[in-house]
Design a binder for these strands. Structure first.
Length: 985
RNA sequence: GGGCGAGUGGCGGAAUGGUAUACGCGGUAGUCUCAAAAACUACUAGUCGCAAGGCUGUGUGGGUUCGACUCCCUCCUCGCCCACCA
């Protein structure tokens, strides 16, 4: 009797053999059919992998194994996203150093991955916190800087007081979903929202700081356009579209009444010095065009402008105070001060109640000539549009609330479907979506859609405004005032700054980068802003992150690295005078924005990833390359070799064929990766501009009806289940639990069912083997003679063929739950059959199971190979070890490389093909309906299925059917061959 | 408030215009056993009926169709994402 602990021995045995035989390591340079399957790498948390990772990782692994069996050279690597706040925060919590923590955690993760039977190629792995990785992260930063896409500027940014660092917009989330109990100080109702830190759940504040940004907004339109060319889970594409948030509207300029505010730049700059003046997305548009005589607003609904009754400015707006009349100055500055100091928490307490204050000034609505009071209110966001809005209370609910509260006039200019033309007195009457224009001069009678166009034209013709596109997307805030990240590889030289010099003014493009002339962006854009800044020379990379014992964030807006004088003080690369290093580190999302490229070149410390751009480089690089690669690549192949200085052949693995991961990365990792890829494409390092040809989001596992989370305490660790059931059972169970794209409900009871199934599988194979070995001759004679056995065998053949087809189709589409159901059906069919099953059929069956249960399949495959029974059917009885795909001693000729024989691992077997003709049935069951209701079923010979008259006659004669047809007039007969016949009476 | 998705037996789920509930879990009965476990066999949507057989049934109400879980419209519920976005 086999006991449960067999599983673990089995796993150990095959893990070792697989590793020695390198069956999961494709030859990256000479692969014939390269195929890159990638599963998002995890950040190695101290808790280890949870069962959700096991679920999604298994799904990716099944796919990789399937494609491998389909004949592709599958590259399926794994690594660790080991830098970042998450690791650092945990290290702080347990009072350890992140370096130690990561070393421990990655070991644990590796062991867990292996025990799940994942077919990763561990000869190519990455750890983003290792200097040989982040050297290239820094290199990437420098490429962006040189292209004018990285910029340090003062900005109002999100600040997490707990993590003591700034955060990108994407990393600020709605507090509702963050179940951090220790932050329950911010007790809040269901509907209340709080902008909180994605990592720790603390409410974020605004601070104005000097920060590094990547100009991702320059790519907004291309990031949108690219979505149409890639095969991704639709909802993730949608999330990106929404995040980019492209909106077309009009920029309208309103003139301010009166001349008492003639330009006084002194006071203007006083104010802007303290407020957000350099909005990433704005390109200083409003600063240049807004003068005290004019206010610019952005609106997507210019059609409603006949109904405009006021103007509202954000408190941070540079004209807010400037436009305020002397008698209102005190009140207004108080209001502005209060708004600035307001924390998110205080805003919560105020709820959605609108606040605001009148500036005392008026603007003119050029359309009507009417005076519109200018108000200051914090419901207007400085971050969006121009930081000023035109209030149309009749057709915008927020404007309505504001107007109602402060007694501003409300005008109706749209009539909706309900035909209501009465004055708008309640918020329910505010028509925002549809209708026809009234009280709007030349627009009257137009549908709002046409009116929008007409008004845009009108505004442009009259010079009141122009068409404008805005985006929700902000520039990517890349710097972090933390320790555990890649140091930003920049040096600031105050001497050069005083002279007005920067890298852009001092570098001769050629001497710094051979490709500089290809840069798409005008370097001069950045030149005047980046005075004093120089990238660390690329040959000096990496800028090593020094080991700092006390790495705690300081909370002063200065990074911990600033404490390390040895690190900070350096020489200017240009004037060689004293200079200072940047002490901020890179956002973790920069590490993960390009890791998929690195996997392909982990052997090289000369190039970051395979690229033709590196291949044509001068000979010194390829010499170095030759040395490092010479152990593995034959000396004679010198031509092939010099080409491979850029590992050019490996580029055939790019872009990623199949990427699998969580939908929670929709607007973070997946957007950043696309951006970085597009930049590298523009810089001619890559010849594709979308990194992931196909992306599929996996679903979430839930437990007891709730999402698994630490705070709920319902996180399941896969280790216990591997111990108890073995990972084959766990893998199959996870894949069977529900559709891969939707996830499922994790319950122990289902695991036992899957264990039973795999036991039945083992029994099926072993009993067939046993009986065959016992009496091979007798059986053979029998089956030849007995017609019953013959028909049983043809039935088996049919079942097998059907299974090959259906399982293959399901796996291809990641429908693993139904694929397994079909494998189960096959087992049921095979068990029902009383005849012994031919070895080729058993083999086929084991192959179908292999992607799901790699250990058991391999074990059974070995048994099928080595048995006396089997040796009659295969050419050779040699063992797995001798005949794996990758022999260590003799390099196989390339012709033979792809050769697959039965004697190799089951995981290197070709996926079976099926015989279409054997799928056809001799007879079919046709359902008979009367008026669409099922009344009977007929068994019809296949050859007669196309004969409608015959089927009709048979159906009519059927006893059950005739009962219903008696005395009725048949008006119509619908026949779907082989499926259904319907009498309409 | 906006967007997206989903609602099917006791449970997880199958079926995307053609015989609803595949596959599995759970349950009931039986075989084996001194007994239990395991394994195996049969049944398992509800309802009326001894049975044959009938009727009802995919969140709600309507529509299209010979025929609807599937397509269209109304409403309800749940989940996820986004949100004072002008």
């Amino acid at each position: 009797m086999k006991n449960k602990y067999d599983y673990l021995e089995l796993q150990k045995k095959w893990e070792k053999k697989w590793k020695n035989a390198k069956i999961y390591q494709p030859d990256l340079d000479s692969a014939k059919k390269p195929y890159y399957v990638l599963y998002m790498f995890p950040y190695p948390s101290a808790e280890g992998l949870h069962v959700g990772h096991a679920f999604s990782g298994t799904g990716a692994d099944v796919y990789a194994r399937f494609m491998r069996m389909k004949g592709y050279d599958v590259f399926h690597p794994m690594g660790f996203d080991a830098f970042g706040i998450h690791s650092e925060n945990y290290a702080l919590k347990i009072n350890d150093h992140p370096k130690n923590l990561i070393d421990r955690a990655t070991k644990h993760f590796r062991q867990q991955f292996d025990s799940l039977g994942f077919s990763y190629d561990w000869s190519h792995t990455v750890n983003t916190s290792s200097p040989d990785y982040y050297k290239w992260t820094q290199w990437l930063f420098i490429q962006l800087f040189k292209a004018g896409l990285a910029e340090k500027k003062k900005a109002l940014v999100n600040w997490c007081p707990s993590c003591k660092t700034v955060l990108a917009d994407e990393q600020v989330v709605s507090g509702k979903n963050v179940g951090m109990t220790h932050h329950s100080v911010y007790a809040r109702d269901e509907d209340e929202r709080l902008r909180v830190c994605e990592r720790c759940g603390t409410a974020v504040e605004y601070r104005e700081l000097e920060q590094w940004f990547f100009k991702i907004t320059k790519y907004a339109d291309r990031l949108l356009e690219g979505l149409d060319r890639i095969d991704w889970t639709e909802k993730v594409k949608l999330a990106q579209r929404n995040w980019i948030g492209r909106k077309e509207g009009s920029l309208i300029r309103f003139s301010v009444l009166g001349s008492q505010f003639s330009a006084n730049s002194q006071s203007a700059s006083l104010l802007t010095g303290q407020l957000k003046t350099d909005q990433p997305n704005s390109d200083n548009r409003q600063q240049k065009t807004d003068t005290p005589e004019f206010i610019e607003v952005f609106t997507t609904r210019p059609d409603t402008n006949f109904g405009a009754t006021f103007i509202a400015l954000a408190p941070e707006h540079r004209l807010a105070l400037k436009l305020t009349t002397p008698q209102n100055k005190d009140k207004v500055s108080k209001y502005i001060e209060r708004s600035k100091k307001k924390t998110e928490q205080e805003r919560m307490e105020e709820g959605r109640e609108k606040t605001g204050i009148f500036s005392g000034s008026y603007a003119i609505n050029d359309l009507t000539g009417e005076k519109m009071p200018i108000w200051i209110s914090d419901f207007v966001l400085m971050e969006f549009g121009t930081g000023a809005v035109v209030g149309v209370p009749g057709h915008d609910k927020r404007d309505f609330q504001f107007a109602q509260k402060f007694g501003l006039p409300i005008k109706r200019v749209v009539v909706g479907k309900d035909g209501d033309t009465s004055p708008i007195a309640s918020i329910e009457q505010v028509q925002e979506e549809e209708g026809k224009m009234i009280n709007s001069g030349f627009l009257n009678g137009l549908d709002i859609k046409d009116a929008i166009k007409a008004m845009m034209d009108h505004l442009e013709a009259k010079g009141f405004g122009k068409r404008e596109v805005t985006y929700h997307l902000r520039d990517w805030l890349i710097s972090r005032q933390r320790y555990w990240g890649a140091p930003i590889p920049m040096v600031y030289c105050s001497n050069c700054a005083n002279r007005g010099d920067s890298w852009f003014t001092t570098s001769k493009p050629k001497s710094h980068h051979r490709e500089i002339s290809n840069f798409k962006f005008q370097i001069s854009n950045s030149a005047h802003k980046m005075r004093g800044w120089f990238p660390v020379p690329e040959e000096d990379l990496p800028v090593v992150l020094p080991y700092i014992e006390n790495f705690k964030p300081l909370g002063t807006g200065v990074a911990p690295l600033a404490q390390d004088k040895k690190f900070v003080n350096t020489k200017c690369p240009v004037c060689h005078g004293p200079a200072k290093r940047e002490t901020d580190v890179c956002d973790t999302f920069l590490d993960s924005a390009w890791y998929f490229l690195r996997y392909l070149a982990t052997e090289s410390d000369k190039i970051p990833f395979p690229s033709k751009a590196f291949a044509s480089e001068n000979s010194e690089n390829s010499d170095i390359q030759r040395q490092s690669d010479s152990q593995t690549i034959r000396q004679s192949d010198s031509t092939e070799f010099s080409e491979s200085s850029g590992m050019v052949k490996r580029t055939r693995f790019l872009p990623i064929n199949m990427y699998i991961g969580g939908a929670e990365h929709s607007v973070l990792h997946l957007l950043y990766s696309r951006f970085v890829t597009k930049v590298l494409f523009d810089l001619k390092f890559l010849d594709f501009d979308e990194p992931f040809t196909k992306f599929r989001a996996h679903g979430l596992l839930i437990k007891d009806g709730a999402k698994m989370s630490k705070s709920r305490g319902n996180v399941v660790n896969p280790d216990n289940y591997i111990q108890r059931f073995g990972s084959d059972t766990l893998r199959c169970y996870l894949m069977f639990i529900g559709p891969f794209s939707q996830g499922g409900d994790f319950r122990d009871s289902g695991m036992e069912g899957m264990e039973r199934f795999l036991k039945r599988v083992r029994k099926l194979i072993e009993s067939n083997l046993a009986s065959a070995i016992g009496q091979p001759q007798a059986k053979k004679n029998q089956s030849d003679k007995s017609s019953a056995k013959f028909s049983a065998n043809s039935k088996i053949e049919k079942s097998i063929n059907r299974a090959i087809k259906r399982v293959g189709e399901d796996v291809e589409n990641l429908r693993y739950n139904t694929a397994l159901a079909k494998i189960m059906e096959l087992v049921n069919d095979l068990n029902e059959s009383k005849a012994n099953i031919a070895p080729k059929h058993l083999k086929t069956f084991v192959i179908l199971l292999a992607p799901f249960a790699p250990y058991l399949s391999e074990e059974l495959w070995e048994k099928l190979q080595s048995s006396v029974f089997s040796s009659q059917f295969s050419e050779s009885g040699k063992s797995f070890d001798q005949l794996t795909g990758k022999q260590k001693t003799v390099k196989p000729k390339s012709d033979n490389r792809q050769q697959r024989t039965d004697n190799r691992s089951v995981h290197l077997q070709p996926w079976p093909s099926f015989d279409e003709s054997s799928l056809s049935e001799e007879e079919a069951t046709v359902a008979v309906q009367v008026n669409g209701r099922l009344r009977s079923q007929l068994t019809i010979d296949s050859s007669q299925l196309t004969n409608k008259e015959l089927v009709k006659q048979k159906a009519r004669n059927d006893q059950k059917v005739s009962k219903y047809l008696k005395g009725q007039q048949v008006r119509k007969v619908i026949y779907v061959p082989g499926k259904i016949i319907n009498f309409v009476v």
